[in-house]
Design a binder for these strands. Structure first.
Length: 634
RNA sequence: GCUGCUGUGGCUCAGCAGGUAGAGCAGCGCACUCGUAAUGCGCAGGUCACCGGUUCGAAUCCGGUCAGCAGCUCCA
């Protein structure tokens, strides 16, 4: 007998060799019915897995990440089986479960069309109906290769060849379909209750643009039809929050054919932007940052010196002035270097925090452009911190706190990644290790969870990246903290230490918003365009009922504007319901309705965007209320 | 940049298999003076992204270019 510790801490005894499914049945029939996989000592296994020793066991259903994962992974196998039935010449690549669904990559002569997707869906339904059990088996390496060669699956052969020696090579079989797969899977195809294929797109084999482009089909599946429908509905709803749509509707910003990737900020968008920048300046002043501004165009030699020529030229724009070669800056750091170098610094002056809202231009691939999220010119809320090596940790911690404080003001959730040395980079391994460890130490001191992004650092140093989510769950890098030993050396930056000698400072590049443009895009989607009062381009709209109320309406507007409140007034000859509807669609936080009663009493009838009619109050009370709200940034 | 899809008045979309464009909203004008999400009537507005080809004739078919969307790659 073996002792199995369950999720609730209770211990059950089973015969050695009991499967997870049998163990689940012993707990309850109901549980066994919805069981999809099991977690044994932290590893996810098939339900048919035999328990051979004392262990911790957690039965996974669709409610758990592991359960969902196995369920969707099996759905992707069903899709592959359907594709092979319909298009036998299709070669299989990889087909994992991902967040919210799954995909499978195929090498086919002719790309899939939307009609093909429907056909594949029908075939999948058939396979599910036929309810094949998924059977796992393993093969020694050479047999595994021979097996896939025989089936004419070159990508699978390549995958097997790349598996480490001695690794168990497992396969899953369902009916006539067999796939190389580590698993786990759910017990049979019939368990899949609701699925849908969502899109086709090209994807490079192994994510390398030098490789062949395969056809990737994305799909998702759920344990109930209602859950699938709810998910699809959520996707539709999320599209309405798209900042590209809202930006145009709310008159904030837009991008025209005349400037692909070069956004226009319209009057209302500028108000929002300026509020953000004001807030930014205020907070940076508190933290002893100085602000500078460096030129957009600087001569080419500077970019040779900084290393950008060697490592970043592909992303840069160049121009000529008279006979000289110039570059349009893709980053602010070289300019910042020149500012630091303008005079000799003492260790007493360090750390020096130099901030710059710098407009940079980068050549992004046309296919990468995405509204304000990915553009070809953007404003970084940059800062370069020059410091002694001893100050690194405190400075990094200070920036982490600053970013966290900013994001919490907006109620953003974020995740953090640590990016390490890329292939194309400058400096010695020792410097990189030192820098990477410094960032790690800071993250660990903060007890922050982070994911390591191998080889994704900047060419001059490793970085901590802060990622925010858009309306449909895609994440975008916003804040970043980059530690740099290279630039100070390249530019021969020095400070005079307590010993009277020259020393090399270390530098941090960091942004909080990231790019103002991207941040505004995220903000717009986060609030679905209904910005909190402190950010709203128009905070109050005054709606007069009749002509005779105009005079008082203007008086109200003047009183509000004297307090710095951003207003608009609607004195058009329209019904009040019409004006309210319009202001509501413009997502203005407060409407003040001005009619006979208000004019007589010096009052305002307040309607909030969120809560509707709030009734009448005195103008003074309203001003006090809204000012408090603005100050609270609520 | 790559793969697929898309491109009709400011916006959202119709326009069957080719015979030189239509609606709603927005805009403008007129009437209505009307209290919490759309008053009525009228008017104007489009080289159907651009270039070329096929055709007696193309928004509709073909090719190219540009732009957008999804994904890949890349990144703030």
């Amino acid at each position: 007998m073996i002792k199995v510790t369950l999720k609730d801490g209770s211990i059950k005894e089973y015969e050695k060799g009991t499967t997870i499914l049998e163990a689940a049945k012993a707990i309850s029939e109901g549980l066994a019915r919805v069981a999809l996989a099991g977690e044994v000592d932290g590893e996810v296994k098939d339900l048919s897995y035999k328990l051979e020793k004392d262990c911790k066991l957690n039965i996974l259903t669709f409610d758990s990440e592991g359960g969902k994962h196995a369920y969707r992974h099996t759905t992707s196998h069903v899709m592959a089986q359907a594709v092979k039935r319909l298009y036998p010449e299709a070669k299989l690549a990889i087909g994992p479960a991902i967040e919210n669904g799954f995909y499978y990559d195929f090498d086919v002569e002719k790309p899939f069309s939307p009609e093909d997707l429907s056909k594949i869906e029908e075939e999948m339904a058939q396979i599910i109906k036929e309810d094949y059990p998924l059977e796992r088996f393993t093969l020694p390496r050479d047999e595994a290769i021979a097996f896939m060669e025989e089936r004419n699956e070159p990508y699978k052969v390549e995958l097997i060849r790349d598996l480490p020696e001695g690794e168990e090579i497992s396969f899953y079989k369902q009916g006539d379909f067999v796939d190389l797969c580590a698993g786990p899977h759910i017990p049979s195809t019939g368990k899949i209750k609701a699925f849908k294929l969502l899109s086709v797109a090209g994807a490079y084999w192994r994510g390398n643009e030098k490789n062949k482009m395969l056809q990737r089909i994305y799909g998702t599946s759920f344990s109930k039809k209602s859950e699938l429908d709810a998910y699809l509905f959520r996707l539709e709803e999320a599209k309405k929050r798209d900042h590209r749509k809202l930006g145009r509707e709310l008159d904030l910003f837009d991008i025209y054919d005349e400037g692909p990737g070069f956004p226009f900020f319209l009057p209302k968008g500028m108000v929002l932007r300026n509020v953000l920048e004001d807030f930014w300046r205020e907070e940076h002043k508190k933290r002893k940052y100085q602000e500078i501004r460096t030129p957009v165009i600087l001569n080419e030699d500077l970019w040779h010196r900084s290393g950008h020529w060697d490592h970043y030229k592909e992303n840069m724009y160049f121009t000529k002035i008279d006979e000289g070669n110039f570059a349009i800056k893709p980053m602010n750091c070289p300019g910042g270097m020149l500012v630091y170098k303008r005079r000799l610094h003492s260790y007493r002056d360090l750390p020096q925090r130099m901030a710059e809202l710098g407009l940079v231009h980068r050549h992004e691939l046309s296919g990468a452009l995405h509204g304000l999220m990915r553009v070809r010119c953007f404003t970084q809320d940059d800062a370069h911190i020059f410091m002694t090596p001893e100050q690194i940790k405190d400075e990094v911690l200070g920036v982490i706190d600053l970013i966290d404080q900013f994001y919490s003001v907006f109620g953003f959730k974020y995740h953090v990644e640590l990016s390490t040395r890329p292939e194309d980079s400058m400096g010695t391994d020792e410097q990189w290790e030192m820098a990477t460890n410094a960032l790690k130490d800071a993250l660990e001191a903060k007890k922050m969870e982070y994911k390591i992004n191998e080889g994704d650092g900047a060419f001059y140093g490793p970085k901590i990246d802060f990622h925010l989510e858009d309306s449909i769950g895609r994440t975008w890098q916003c804040g970043t903290i980059q530690l740099d030993f290279q630039m100070p050396e390249r530019f021969d930056l020095v400070y005079i230490g307590a010993d009277g000698e020259r020393h090399r400072p270390v530098m941090i590049h960091r942004v909080v918003f990231g790019s103002i443009e991207r941040f505004i895009a995220i903000l717009t989607e986060h609030y679905a365009g209904a910005f909190p009062t402190w950010l709203a381009p128009v905070q109050v709209k005054i709606l007069a009922i009749l002509d005779k109320h105009h005079e008082y309406a203007y008086k109200v507007q003047k009183a509000l504007e004297e307090k710095g409140i951003r207003t608009e007034i609607d004195i058009r000859n329209e019904k009040i319901g019409y004006k309210i509807r319009e202001a509501q669609l413009e997502k203005i936080p407060y409407m003040l309705i001005i009619g006979d009663k208000e004019t007589e009493n010096g009052a305002v009838a307040v309607r909030s965007r969120k809560d509707g009619d709030l009734g009448a109050m005195s103008l003074e009370d309203f001003i006090e209320k809204i000012i408090k709200e603005i100050e609270m940034k609520a």
